[in-house]
């Protein structure tokens, strides 16, 4: 297990380094936007990874509601937490790109607003899990996560069905992307997926240990009370 983790960590570091080099050096410079367009290699893969994590969170929440499985509950918690981190990256890098290209940091455009709503839903999910001590918390959180996941397709397809200021999707949206840019984008996506997987794995182990510690502490105080 430890060896697998080390291999994945080394692979992820190599992938991230190569992808950073590819994004800054190997990818061609876009003619209109110039180097600012390179933000796209971090912004788009981060969004994809966040969506994937929220979808895993949705599946885990449904499994938890059906089977009351602790593992599913932990997977839901972990993916929501790491998903919020990646979604934060999306919400920060987007305006940094928009400022020189659109001339504004933020606009209440449909996709931007829905992404912000998605982030707020999962932040409230984490707040609920952090500050509620009720035994019903995992169930309430699972219900919230299922509603939250409904926002993911809305965010993704908002630029397909509505006229928004956000650029058209690069895959399947009719937009044309230079193949050299395409593979740099995919390489960054793989690198960020590996990073997300690594963080989720670590966070999962930590949550399991934390719950075991709490159980042991409760048992210990029970035994001391019985004496």
């Amino acid at each position: 297990m430890k060896r697998g983790f080390t291999i994945l960590a080394v692979l992820t570091a190599l992938l991230l380094s190569f992808s950073l080099y590819a994004a800054l050096v190997l990818a061609p410079t876009e003619q209109t936007m110039g180097n600012v367009q390179r933000i796209f290699y971090y912004h788009v893969p981060s969004a994809w990874v966040a969506f994937q994590l929220f979808l895993i969170n949705f599946v885990a929440s449904v499994i938890y509601m059906i089977r009351r499985s602790t593992k599913a509950d932990i997977v839901a918690l972990v993916t929501a937490e790491v998903g919020v981190v990646f979604c934060t990256v999306v919400l920060i890098t987007g305006p940094i790109w928009a400022r020189p290209v659109w001339g504004i940091w933020w606009t209440w455009d449909l996709r931007l607003t829905l992404t912000l709503v998605l982030w707020l839903i999962y932040v409230s999910y984490l707040v609920l899990r952090r500050f509620s001590s009720s035994s019903q918390t995992p169930l309430l959180a699972a219900v919230l996560a299922i509603f939250g996941a409904l926002d993911v397709p809305l965010v993704y397809f908002s630029i397909w069905f509505f006229r928004t200021q956000h650029p058209a999707p690069v895959i399947g949206g009719g937009g044309s992307l230079d193949p050299r840019m395409g593979w740099v984008l995919v390489s960054n996506w793989i690198a960020f997926m590996a990073l997300a997987w690594l963080i989720c794995w670590t966070r999962y182990q930590l949550e399991v240990a934390q719950r075991a510690v709490h159980e042991a502490e409760a048992m210990q105080s029970l035994m001391e009370g019985a004496r």
């Binding site: 110039g34 600012v36 390179r38 971090y42 990256v89 920060i92 890098t93 940094i96 400022r99």
Partner: peptide, 19 residues
């Protein structure tokens, strides 16, 4: 368009958040 500092800011912010 020469606005390299926006590019650096975006990349630094990404790693600052993960860090």
């Amino acid at each position: 368009m020469n606005a390299n500092h926006y590019l650096y800011a975006a990349y630094i912010m990404t790693w600052a958040i993960h860090g």
